[in-house]
């Protein structure tokens, strides 16, 4: 599904990622672990080009999205991303946070189609070979109603439907992160990228977020998680990548990595955190 080929990322002279090559298949749950500054967050952010790679290619569904001439926005719609700092839109209510992107994208498509139809109609009145006009079977109101219904369904799923019309500043960290996750789900992504989703939460709120992620795991969502929760990585991951100094030093199934690490650096790291 995602092929990462010779991925490199530099900040000025600092090499953060050095030649990373790996493949993420449909349905895999990948946990990325490693010490701070090992480039794991940068690697994740390169997967949907939040950071532009300096070199190499990222093939997502057959398209190299690292190429600057590719319209990245279209491909990002299929990759949900969840941040450490939640990043809910502060000026929008919870339900608007969830509705904003699906609604904007669909009504934008509608506007473009209407505009194209307008020009085709003008053209058709002057020429003989008529061009077919685009079929429009929706309206702005319908798009809005659908987006709202979908958002309410997602909020019900996480039990926060009573918070639909409040602003994010009134919510707890765990609630914010769960809303951030369903906001990403509202786009029906094919893969979810989690960037340390529980690192800035109070300990008692970590559970509720991990439970939601586990639900997604059980539904078969493909996901990549950067995490410091080793127990969680062990439980849900189908493959664990250990990164240090911008390289993947070891990748294997969690049982192997956690009980029988081969690389010396992995052993050292795991002995500290476990």
């Amino acid at each position: 599904m995602i092929d990462v080929i010779n991925l490199k990322k530099n900040y000025g002279k600092l090499e953060v990622l050095k030649d990373i090559t790996t493949t993420i298949n449909q349905g895999e749950k990948i946990a990325i672990i490693g010490p701070s500054g090992s480039g794991k967050s940068t690697f994740l952010r390169c997967l949907n080009c939040m950071e532009d790679p300096t070199g190499g290619a990222i093939i997502f569904e057959g398209v190299d999205i690292a190429n600057i001439n590719v319209d990245i926005n279209i491909h990002r719609r299929h990759m949900g991303m969840v941040f450490q700092q939640f990043n809910l839109f502060n000026n929008k209510t919870v339900i608007d946070n969830i509705m904003l992107s699906p609604m904007h994208i669909e009504s934008h498509d509608l506007r473009v189609k209407k505009l194209k139809n307008f020009f085709i109609k003008i053209r058709n009145t002057f020429t003989k070979n008529k061009k077919p006009i685009y079929e429009i079977n929706t309206t702005r109101a319908k798009i809005k109603a659908e987006a709202k219904e979908n958002a309410m369904r997602l909020l019900k799923r996480i039990g926060l439907e009573d918070k639909a019309n409040v602003y994010p500043s009134t919510l707890s960290g765990g609630q914010k992160q769960r809303i951030a996750i369903v906001r990403a789900l509202a786009m029906n992504p094919k893969v979810m990228l989690f960037d340390e989703p529980t690192s800035s939460l109070d300990p008692e709120m970590v559970g509720e977020v991990l439970d939601l992620i586990k639900q997604l795991v059980n539904e078969g969502m493909t996901m990549v998680i950067v995490t410091h929760e080793m127990g969680f990585a062990k439980e849900v991951a189908t493959r664990v990548l250990f990164m240090d100094e911008g390289k993947i030093l070891e990748e294997d199934v969690p049982e192997e990595i956690f009980t029988n690490p081969k690389n010396a650096r992995t052993k050292e790291f795991l002995s500290k955190v476990l």
């Binding site: 949907n48 991303m81 941040f83 990043n87 839109f89």
Partner: peptide
């Protein structure tokens, strides 16, 4: 992070700028 969140949802730079 506000801009990043908008971009990660597939909105363009200009739209995220104007709406968020």
């Amino acid at each position: 992070g506000q801009m990043e969140a908008g971009r990660a949802l597939g909105l363009s730079y200009q739209v995220t700028m104007l709406k968020v």
